[in-house]
């Protein structure tokens, strides 16, 4: 079976790493695209396998012009299945690869403090008003955090605001990363009640498909 790490653009050479189960990495050309793969004896997901996958993708990132990381999923049964799956999506994949060139992904996770305790509601309507007010406050906050960062990004992904967590990925040109970090620091300083965690730079995991912006 075949495990795919990612699709690469102008890969210099394979990194001196082994793939899952210590199998050698291989380059595979399908249509106009080049993939980095390795043979796997079985489908098994372990933490070690996940970390190895990530390590290979990371190494590919530094040796090629662009990488589209593949999602860690069930391996392909063989070449035939791999070729037909990739061929079916080749034009879209080529476009995405072009889109992420020169960019890294930065992640932002924001944890909002617990809502102030809503005063005892005297009626259902009052309770609803309080809830709506809270929702409104939250969406304003999200917009206020997201806007300056989205401006510095090529694309954004995710960001479905959970109850008190906001998570979003930003596709940022490598040269814009310091500016982005400064913007996060400013947001942090302006919103001392929030917990902001900025992670990355990551390979563009979240930008394999068409996204917002």
């Amino acid at each position: 079976m075949i495990h795919v790490y990612g699709i690469v653009d102008e890969l210099d050479s394979l990194p001196p790493l082994e793939g899952l189960d210590d199998a050698p990495l291989e380059r595979r050309r399908v249509d106009d695209l080049e993939l980095v793969v390795s043979e796997v004896p079985r489908e098994e997901v372990t933490q070690e396998a996940v970390l190895r996958h990530a390590e290979v993708v990371e190494a590919l990132m530094s040796r090629s012009r662009a990488v589209l990381p593949a999602q860690f999923s069930r391996p392909f049964s063989g070449d035939e299945e791999l070729v037909s799956a990739v061929t079916a999506k080749a034009p879209e994949l080529g476009q995405r690869l072009h889109r992420v060139r020169g960019c890294v992904e930065l992640g932002l996770r924001v944890v909002a403090p617990k809502a102030e305790t809503v005063p005892e509601a005297k009626s259902g309507a009052e309770y609803l008003r309080a809830r709506l007010g809270e929702e409104h406050r939250r969406s304003q906050l999200v917009a206020q955090l997201d806007e300056p960062l989205a401006r510095l990004s090529q694309e954004t992904a995710g960001g479905a605001a959970g109850s008190d967590v906001f998570e979003r990925a930003y596709l940022v040109r490598a040269e814009d990363v310091p500016t982005f970090i400064n913007a996060v620091r400013e947001l942090e300083a302006a919103n001392p009640e929030l917990s902001l965690a900025c992670t990355g730079p990551w390979p563009p995991y979240s930008f394999g498909a068409e996204t917002t912006k």
């Binding site: 699709i7 997901v45 996940v50 990530a54 999602q71 860690f72 299945e81 995405r96 990925a169 394999g208």
Partner: peptide, 20 residues
């Protein structure tokens, strides 16, 4: 958590199989 989430839940989907 961010790393594992990216590897398993993000990344370009090539196969139509169930993801993990």
């Amino acid at each position: 958590l961010d790393l594992v989430d990216r590897v398993l839940n993000k990344g370009v989907v090539l196969s139509g199989d169930i993801t993990l």
